[in-house]
């Protein structure tokens, strides 16, 4: 039986810049940053969630061929890929903190049936939901 999701990839355009963004702006920690030949394995995760890692992957060989990399890069840069939903204990406060740090939001905190939700982008252009779940 599958027990949990441990890793999920997010396509990023520049791994150095993404590493800075996810650690300095979002407050994540680096789990692994290892390079083998030209391939760099870079993962980060929220401090409170040690059993999950986001793989900050750069589109290109060996994961995808050059042509696919071009298509993925354009999609990310145009802002059309959504990479997931993140949870916060206080959406408005996190929104204020991240905005102060220069994180770009495309939706301010809004009341939804399941909680309070804002939508932001990472430095590559991937969008994420930032949600404070309603209890129950």
């Amino acid at each position: 039986m599958i027990k949990r999701i441990s890793h999920a990839p997010v396509w990023v355009l520049d791994q150095d810049s993404a590493k800075k963004f996810y650690t300095e702006k979002l407050g994540f920690e680096v789990r692994t940053d290892a390079t083998m030949d030209d391939f760099r394995w870079l993962t980060v995760g929220p401090k409170d969630q040690p059993d999950f890692e986001i793989i900050l992957a750069k589109p290109g060989p060996p994961m995808v061929d050059e042509e696919a990399a071009k298509a993925i890069t354009a999609l990310v840069a145009r802002g059309q890929l959504g990479a997931g939903a993140m949870e916060t204990d206080n959406c408005q406060r996190t929104y204020d903190e991240l905005t102060k740090k220069g994180v770009q939001f495309l939706q301010e905190p809004a009341d939804r049936p399941y909680g309070i939700e804002a939508v932001f982008r990472d430095d590559s252009g991937n969008w994420f939901s930032l949600t404070e779940r309603k209890p129950g």
Binding site: G82, A85, Q107, R112, Y114, E117
Partner: peptide, 9 residues
């Protein structure tokens, strides 16, 4: 019951 972020996108 569809998350608002998905409706937006």
């Amino acid at each position: 019951p569809i998350p608002g972020c998905f409706v937006l996108m």
